[in-house]
Design a protein around this nucleic acid. Sequence first.
DNA 1: GCGCATAGTGTCGATAAGGATACCGTTATG
DNA 2: CATAACGGTATCCTTATCGACACTATGCGC
Lengths: 121, 121
Amino acid sequence: MSRVRHDRLDCSPGCAVEAALQFIDGKWKGVILYHLLDGTLRFNEIRRRLPGVTPRMLTNQLRELEADGFLARKVFAEVPPKVEYSLTGRGRSLEPVIAALKAWGDAHADFAPKPYADAAA
Amino acid sequence: MSRVRHDRLDCSPGCAVEAALQFIDGKWKGVILYHLLDGTLRFNEIRRRLPGVTPRMLTNQLRELEADGFLARKVFAEVPPKVEYSLTGRGRSLEPVIAALKAWGDAHADFAPKPYADAAA
DNA sequence: GCGCATAGTGTCGATAAGGATACCGTTATG
DNA sequence: CATAACGGTATCCTTATCGACACTATGCGC
């Protein structure tokens, strides 16, 4: 997972946009972050919130998010393993972004498919 | 380019986030949208603003954005071809999102760190 | 005729992101 | 003993995405 969309972030001011985008792209990052805004969650709690995610993918995304400093992984040395994921301060800093994304998605809830050939505005 | 990250958008409220993300993922979409917020641009103007983009990629991203109804393509039947790209209303509706993204990118301008494994720089 | 500029298109190929499926150790429960 | 829950891994494979490069048509200046 390189997630290096732009090795050269010299696209002028606009690259800040891409820089931010780098972190939340990845098929499940956005939703994961979103759900974590509500509070700490365990592996399988997240998993249940994301229908269709495979454990591999979830681990994957979680690890990337952790590596990027957005969330903290807390392992409890208990018998049924227990791992809690929670946002870090950096993770919370994404809140406005996630909020904007969600607001847009809700407003333009055209979850309906978009015909690729001819889209009317 | 399917851009169908989630065929089932049933990840509860969080899917709105993903729904929005679908449209701006793609390596150059974010920046393109960003630059277009400043006003109408021609093909090569955009191209010059995105160092490293190949014409093929640019066309590609532009077409997707157009298909998604975010921008309008206006062709002038002139001799040196001239095509103008501008945001539609729907495109402008993304402004808060782009703004949030840019704000985050600017604030957390850690364009550098990310010791993922051993990021070669 | 040559090369420039415009706005692309076509083909091919590399890579990386994502998906399927099975499996691990532990312990409590039936 | 078998099963289930927990939090993952390992392996393999398919596909999307991206990138390089060449090529198109037209008219202009030289």
